[in-house]
Simulated scan of single mutants.
Amino acid sequence: MEKWFNVGKIVNTQGIKGEVRVISKTDFPEKRYKAGNVLFLFMPNSNTPVELTVKSHRTHKNFELLTFEGFNNINEVEKFRDGILKVPESQLGTLAEDEFYYHEIIGCLVSTTEGEEIGKIAEILSPGANDVWVVKGKGGKEVLIPYIHDVVKKVDVQEKIVIIEPMEGLLS
């Protein structure tokens, strides 16, 4: 059975020419939403996905704006609202060394090079220059770990382990 990965949610339409607003859940929006790529739309009350080919993509505020081939006006895409865009596992593709999919990182156990257990990665933020991993520690305390080479020393997605060398003040 094919495994599906969520890459975004259609939350509204934009304008009258068939553009939709998407809250992105993908690690690589510039690759995932490229014109010609195929996405699958899963609607809340249907088990059959709708195959959609991306016609155009642009970013506006906190949204990804997409149009799909064959859908040229607001009336045709209004029914897509609240739909989840997904891709099959076979479409994930290979990544460069030191690049990971969110689903591979979330849930990893984070420890220091000294062997101190920090917690598990619960969320990934993408504020700008580098990703920030939100680690839920003991007692529910959140620790923010920047994904930079100076801090993250080893990532083993098979074993679900991340080894970090904390900068001064990072864990206090």
Score class of each variant (00 low, 15 high):
1 M>A: 11
2 E>N: 10
2 E>D: 14
3 K>F: 04
5 F>I: 10
8 G>H: 08
8 G>F: 01
9 K>S: 02
11 V>P: 11
15 G>D: 00
16 I>D: 15
17 K>I: 03
20 V>N: 02
20 V>H: 01
21 R>F: 03
21 R>D: 07
24 S>W: 02
24 S>M: 04
25 K>W: 05
25 K>T: 02
26 T>G: 00
27 D>K: 12
29 P>Y: 02
31 K>A: 06
34 K>S: 06
34 K>L: 03
34 K>P: 00
34 K>A: 06
35 A>V: 03
35 A>D: 06
36 G>R: 01
37 N>P: 03
37 N>A: 01
38 V>A: 09
38 V>N: 15
39 L>H: 01
40 F>N: 12
40 F>M: 12
40 F>P: 02
40 F>H: 14
43 M>G: 04
44 P>T: 08
45 N>Y: 11
47 N>F: 07
48 T>N: 11
50 V>N: 14
51 E>R: 15
53 T>P: 06
54 V>N: 02
55 K>N: 10
55 K>D: 13
57 H>A: 00
59 T>F: 10
61 K>F: 05
63 F>H: 11
63 F>G: 01
64 E>M: 08
66 L>H: 04
67 T>K: 03
67 T>W: 03
67 T>C: 00
68 F>Q: 14
68 F>L: 01
71 F>D: 01
71 F>S: 06
72 N>F: 01
73 N>M: 01
74 I>F: 04
75 N>H: 08
75 N>G: 08
76 E>F: 01
77 V>C: 02
77 V>I: 06
77 V>T: 09
80 F>H: 09
81 R>C: 04
82 D>A: 08
83 G>H: 08
83 G>I: 05
83 G>R: 10
85 L>D: 09
85 L>A: 03
90 S>P: 03
90 S>K: 09
93 G>L: 00
96 A>M: 10
97 E>A: 09
98 D>M: 11
99 E>C: 05
101 Y>P: 02
104 E>K: 07
105 I>M: 07
106 I>P: 03
106 I>C: 12
108 C>T: 14
108 C>R: 09
109 L>T: 14
111 S>P: 04
112 T>W: 07
112 T>E: 08
113 T>V: 15
115 G>K: 06
116 E>G: 04
117 E>Y: 02
118 I>P: 12
118 I>M: 13
119 G>W: 10
120 K>S: 09
121 I>L: 04
121 I>R: 09
121 I>P: 04
123 E>V: 05
124 I>K: 07
126 S>Y: 11
127 P>V: 07
128 G>Y: 14
130 N>M: 08
130 N>K: 10
130 N>Y: 14
130 N>V: 10
131 D>C: 08
131 D>G: 05
133 W>L: 15
135 V>Y: 11
136 K>S: 15
137 G>D: 12
137 G>R: 12
137 G>W: 05
138 K>S: 15
141 K>F: 10
142 E>P: 06
143 V>Y: 15
144 L>M: 13
145 I>N: 06
147 Y>L: 10
151 V>A: 04
151 V>G: 06
151 V>L: 07
153 K>M: 06
153 K>F: 09
154 K>G: 05
155 V>I: 10
156 D>A: 03
157 V>I: 11
158 Q>D: 11
158 Q>P: 02
158 Q>V: 11
160 K>Y: 11
162 V>K: 11
162 V>P: 13
162 V>N: 04
163 I>K: 15
163 I>N: 14
163 I>M: 14
164 I>S: 13
166 P>C: 09
166 P>K: 05
166 P>S: 03
171 L>W: 02
172 S>L: 12
